[in-house]
Amino acid sequence: MHAQDKVVDPNEVVLWSDDYEGHDVISTRTFGFWMYVLSDGMLFATLFAAYGVLSYSHSYYTGPTPAQFVAPWYTFIQTMALFLSVLAYGFAMTALKSGSKAGVVNGIIASILLGGVFLGLNIHDVLRMISIGVTPETSGGLSAFYALTQVHAAHIFIGLIWMLVMLYQIMRQGFTEDTVGRLISLRMFWQFQAVMWVFIYIFVYLWGYMS
């Protein structure tokens, strides 16, 4: 039976949404950002696929293989810096729940500093590798290595800029619908980059070191 066949009382039927207050702005925006994170995940998946295809021994041509140049302990410090940065951001978000502006600001500052440590160590590591002749122009394998790690680093860089913008906005505007929504989206972004880093650390650095 079709819905059309039911008897409808014209005096009872609801044709217009009287008590509809429109969509919730924060949840709509964070949902959209979650969609973006999904597409970012596909971006990393594609880079991982390229790295996988370009990690055979012949992919390194006559150049070095990751076992010869990665430094998992050094990179482990990076890992810890990034995790602590995510933790600090988590503290900022707990402070947000209690409405503490100082807590949010302090948490984000700590997060920026630790993220900055991660990025600084990354740049230092890249310079070290380039100084010993490990450059992206050497071989397809190294191209893929640099693409994956440095695209991640670029995300971290963008995240840091975003955090600076958020600091400014929170201090100027306080907790508005706009800023709270952005803080939640930034949390998703930041945690997602940490998750991607876990994969990179395992598949690129640890696995590369072992192989």
Binding site: T46, A50, L54, S59, G140, S143
Partner: peptide
């Protein structure tokens, strides 16, 4: 995103001299 990555890697080959898709140097 797959397209963006594929073309960004072509771009890297052409601008930065990487070897993702070259016939030699371990490209594929």
């Amino acid at each position: 995103p797959c397209l963006q990555v594929a073309l960004a890697l072509v771009g890297a080959d052409r601008y930065l001299g990487t070897h993702f898709f070259t016939a030699g140097f371990g490209g594929n």
